[in-house]
Design a binder for these strands. Sequence first.
RNA 1: GGCCCCAUCGUCUAGUGGACUAGGACACGAGGUUUUCAGCCUUGUAACCUGGGUUCGAAUCCCAGUGGGGUCACCA
Length: 476
Amino acid sequence: MAGKKVRTRMAPSPTGEYHIGHIRTLLYNWAFAKKIKGDFILRIEDTDRERYVEGATERILEVIKSYGFDWDEGPEIGGPYEPYFQSKRLEIYQKYSQELIDKGAAYHCFCSEDRLAKMREEQKTRGIVSTKYDRFCLKLTKDEVVKNLENKLPYVIRMKVPDNKVVSFNDIISDKISVSSNEIDDQVLIKSDGFPTYHFAVVVDDHLMKITHIMRGNDWIPSTPKHVLLYQSFGWELPYFAHIPNLKEMGAEKKLSKRYGAVGAKEFLDEGYLPAAVLNYLMFLGWSPDTEKEIYTLEEFVKDFSIEKIHKTDLVSFDRKKLLWMNGQYIQKLTDENFAEVSLKFAPEGIDKKFLIKIASLVKSRLKTLSELKDLIEFFVKKPKVDKKILGESWEKHLRSAKSIIEKEDSWSLEDLNDNLMKEIEEKGFKTGKFFMDLRIAITGKKETPPINDSIIILGKDEVIERLNSVLSIKP
RNA sequence: GGCCCCAUCGUCUAGUGGACUAGGACACGAGGUUUUCAGCCUUGUAACCUGGGUUCGAAUCCCAGUGGGGUCACCA
């Protein structure tokens, strides 16, 4: 296989929304292809008609793009190994399953779901927990099979797993993995509806599409021997396998759970996470570089990534707090213009891009996600409801003093406002902290806000006086 | 339960037989930045699953136990 152009792939199933864990798998596959100047292929594995979700394919492609990924071959752009939808490759699977039948490596099975269920039941009562097909139809003569076929009996095609054989493969991450073929069931290859199962389609397509490296979650390790057997039956060269650690929820649950927050790749974006931040966090879930560098752009990741550095471990926790921190770091690093651009859709009504640029430096460091923006800055465009109970004892004195100073501000510069307010505080003997807290609450309605003097300057004199009057119950 | 995989701070991890009094980051605690919150700076707490080997020497190699996970469909 040395010397061949590296080709990796991601093969989503349109059976639901695209998960954040899928993005991580895609990230590794994509980055590896980019690094080696290979190809990254996208293939849609839509062979399950029962679980098919309308529109899921489009949404998956959309979210992949919104994270900044592209593909060299696949839906929308095609490529030399079209089609890239498995549902459109049925004849191909038909042809290759026939080849296996001809070789004696697969056979027709006419067993009904009913019989299969009873068979499993019976095996279980005998104490067999890991049930397997009993090869009832393997005993059928050629004539019987032909007759059944002529009579249009429904059937599936099963692989004939050889007995007493050690099946093994080398995993780049987990080293050599071996298992006895006696452990492997006669897996269904073609379902009775004529569609292939995952196990069959993935092997045929990966071979036909010349995929060289298969990187996927390590929950696929137990079924890889089936695939290896298939490669061997066909006489095809094995690709490299790399099974990466799966993600789990930090806390009680094992899988990522909605109970703890977003799980869908799009959800994170909707909640105001920056794609670059999510990606940066994802990179380190099962991989780390030689250095202690932790902030990585996609380009830097492509440069430093290697499959060998993926951790040989079982599960990694998805730590939402660290993601939050990472996202905050990325928001802070945004230029004011970029910040305005990405945060516009999270801003309250009445706030435009120009205004966001103006306040960017006041709010960037205060946000962990963009969705927190609305609460933080709404007071700029909406008069606050001030709960007088949260004001300090001397609030009236404070506000009257503040008002008198602000009314006299002609330059309307931050420096002057600051100086004059401080002078007043000193003269009147106020407590600085309490003074500003009352002012803050009167202007914004909240105890936690952007810097208050900056906010006053931005709000403008009339608006500020109006708000002070309102709290002091002074009618204009 | 069978089979397979895994095992360093709470979490992500560094570590590939001596440089380890086990390093970094998040989280958490303390202090500072003499107006909030956030940010930033300084600082602290905190880990090699257990038991046997191998070796002059083990977090690092081997074995066993324990623990965790995955998987056993006409789903992927």
